[in-house]
């Protein structure tokens, strides 16, 4: 059984103008699935529909035996706990410390009073320290998030997502705000952490080369539809033309 199964997903922000037109996908087991496609084709919308930061218009999102599209309230929050998310602009709570940001991955399991007083489980705290060490920020635990560089922030973002012990990791263009070298480092951190924890990753990515380099599977989207689904090696210039349109940009 696949981890995540999306069936006939449709999203319309304006009635009659669908951004996502009938998307069906299965994400299996482990490894990285990269979604590529031009800006505005609904990649972000697709990712956000999975953990319901955006509500889909129609379709099913099956994850761990539940249809996420139909959940709300407490069951939805419980489902979200099982899905980690890494954001393009890191989305750390800037005025909190690095440690508080990482530990906020456990918020779904805490009542408001304990959360307010920062009474986290000792085991969670140790795990957070281990994760920070793993992403190379062992000495930054008590620094405020807004003191960090972009690459460091994204490392904290990944640690926060993994802290949830999720069954699926979503990443919405995690490298688009970073320089090329840092982008590769972040992708390596994400790949390795996901592999160590057996988490499948679904990632939106702008840079085709990064997608090809790190993903086991590439999904090409264009105009709200899936136009390619296969291995990175299968991405030849014909298919890229189909995804992004035109061809002048391919000539170098």
């Amino acid at each position: 059984m696949s981890t995540l199964s999306i069936k006939h997903l449709v999203k319309e922000y304006v009635p009659g103008k669908p951004v996502l037109k009938d998307i069906s996908l299965d994400i299996e087991g482990r490894g990285i699935t990269a979604i590529i496609g031009p800006s505005g084709t609904g990649k972000s919308t697709l990712i956000r529909c999975v953990n319901r930061l955006i509500n889909p218009t129609a379709g099913e999102i099956l994850f761990e035996g539940q249809d996420l599209a139909k959940l709300s309230g407490q069951p939805l929050r419980e489902a979200r706990r099982r899905i980690g998310m890494v954001f393009q602009e890191y989305n750390l709570v800037e005025r909190l410390t690095v440690m508080e940001n990482v530990l906020s991955g456990r918020l779904g399991y805490m009542n408001a009073w304990a959360a307010w007083r920062r009474k986290f489980d000792e085991a969670d705290i140790q795990k957070a320290f281990a994760l920070l060490k793993r992403v190379g920020l062992a000495d930054f635990a008590n620094r405020r998030a807004d003191e960090l560089s972009g690459g460091q922030r994204q490392r904290v973002g990944i640690a926060r997502a993994v802290m949830q012990s999720p069954g699926l990791l979503l990443a919405d263009e995690p490298t688009s705000s970073l320089d090329p070298k840092t982008s590769v480092e972040i992708m390596e951190v994400m790949r390795d952490l996901a592999a160590e924890n057996n988490i499948p990753v679904m990632i939106n990515i702008h840079q085709v080369d990064l997608g090809k380099r790190f993903a086991q599977r590439v999904i090409g989207m264009s105009g709200g539809l899936v136009v390619y689904d296969g291995t990175p090696d299968g991405l030849d210039s014909d298919i890229l033309k189909k995804i992004y349109g035109g061809q002048d940009w391919l000539a170098t």
């Binding site: 410390t97 440690m99 508080e100 920062r118 705290i125 140790q126 957070a128 320290f129 635990a141």
Partner: peptide, 12 residues
């Protein structure tokens, strides 16, 4: 061995 490495985290 884990508890030997236990780090304390305090907010302030």
């Amino acid at each position: 061995s884990a508890s030997l490495e236990m780090q304390r985290w305090i907010r302030f």
